[in-house]
């Protein structure tokens, strides 16, 4: 087995082989999830805590279903309503939970790097479910699985990522993953939503959407994160949709068999036209949700194996 990490904090530390290992195992869980008997017991006896410091519906549900199907005891903690409001620091919260001996900790936090910080203080496996604008590794893995299944490969593809790149952890993880797997990545968006020195990431940057979509195999739309906006990044929603919203006319610049992706939740009529999102010939948005559960099962399975090995005293697993 080539997946040796203790935590899944980001795509950055993963090697291409490790990414392939997760995706290969995910295929197995896709099949399992489609069967009537959806249970595996690889996490039996283990406790999984989902700590979401930021509102989330789909990611939290996906992790919860993944954990339950693998036989873990899953607990959801709505951190916005809990002790953090009473002034407890992130580290104290982590130490408190750690004392309850969880095995898997799934964390979403609004600050970049906060999940790394938390992982240093606990002795269970930590999965990053999104930290600020930094990384969202399971999203990038599920996107990769979706692409690989639709295109039959995960290399030498031209992938256009469009929209609010600057505030997007999904974009960062995808840029890293697609780059590691030797794909050509383009970023499309108004310059106010493109991070500084993005061209240094090894990607091509476009502010003209039609030019950016030219010949793309994959079109990945991002949510325009209104809640993250300080205000003033774009003039208006309607101008944004006119210039950067995905509609049939703009999609025609991509390859004829290009697939359309979106991490959800979608703003129909802001970044994507509803008819495109619902076009079963082009859109793989529902499949992304399905792959999300499988990828999270695979990631937790692998981390649990490493955790067991480490606890059994088989030292070398921790890198």
């Amino acid at each position: 087995m080539t997946f040796r990490a203790r935590h899944l904090l980001g795509i950055e530390p993963l090697k291409p082989d490790e990414i392939r290992t997760v995706l290969d195992l995910s295929e197995h869980y896709v099949d399992l999830n489609r069967s009537p008997e959806k249970h595996a017991d690889v996490l039996r006896g283990m406790t999984q805590i989902n700590m979401f410091f930021e509102a989330s519906t789909r990611t939290q549900a996906s992790f919860e279903i993944a954990g339950k199907r693998l036989g873990a005891d899953v607990m959801n903690m709505a951190m916005q309503a809990s002790s953090i409001k009473k002034g407890e620091t992130l580290i104290d919260t982590a130490l408190t939970l750690n004392a309850m001996h969880p095995d898997l900790l799934v964390v979403r936090q609004p600050n970049s790097g906060a999940v790394d910080l938390l992982a240093q203080k606990v002795n269970c496996a930590v999965l990053n479910a999104g930290d600020g604008r930094h990384e969202h590794p399971t999203q990038a893995l599920l996107d990769a699985l979706t692409i690989r299944r639709a295109k039959g490969r995960l290399q030498r593809l031209t992938v256009a990522i469009c929209g609010d790149i600057a505030h997007s952890r999904v974009a960062r993880s995808n840029i890293l993953l697609l780059g590691k797997m030797e794909n050509r990545v383009r970023l499309i968006g108004p310059p106010t939503l493109i991070p500084a020195r993005a061209a240094d990431f090894g990607v091509e940057v476009y502010d003209d959407m039609r030019a950016g979509l030219e010949g793309a195999d994959v079109v990945m739309m991002l949510r325009l994160q209104k809640e993250r906006m300080d205000g003033g990044f774009i003039p208006s929603e309607r101008e944004y949709f006119h210039r950067y919203g995905l509609d049939a006319e703009k999609l025609a610049y991509a390859k004829d068999d290009a697939i359309v992706m979106h991490p959800g939740p979608m703003n129909r009529g802001v970044e994507i036209d509803g008819t495109i999102a619902d076009d079963i010939n082009r859109s793989v948005i529902q499949e992304q949700v399905e792959m999300g559960v499988a990828v999270r099962m695979a990631a937790m399975d692998l981390l649990a194996q490493n955790l067991r090995a480490a606890r059994a005293g088989d030292g070398g697993i921790y890198v």
């Binding site: 950055e12 990384e135 952890r169 960062r172 500084a196 020195r197 993005a198």
Partner: peptide, 15 residues
């Protein structure tokens, strides 16, 4: 400081 490092780390940055 705004630049590649801050962008990859997802940190709010100043020019």
């Amino acid at each position: 400081t705004s630049g590649k490092f801050a962008s990859l780390r997802g940190l709010p940055a100043v020019s």
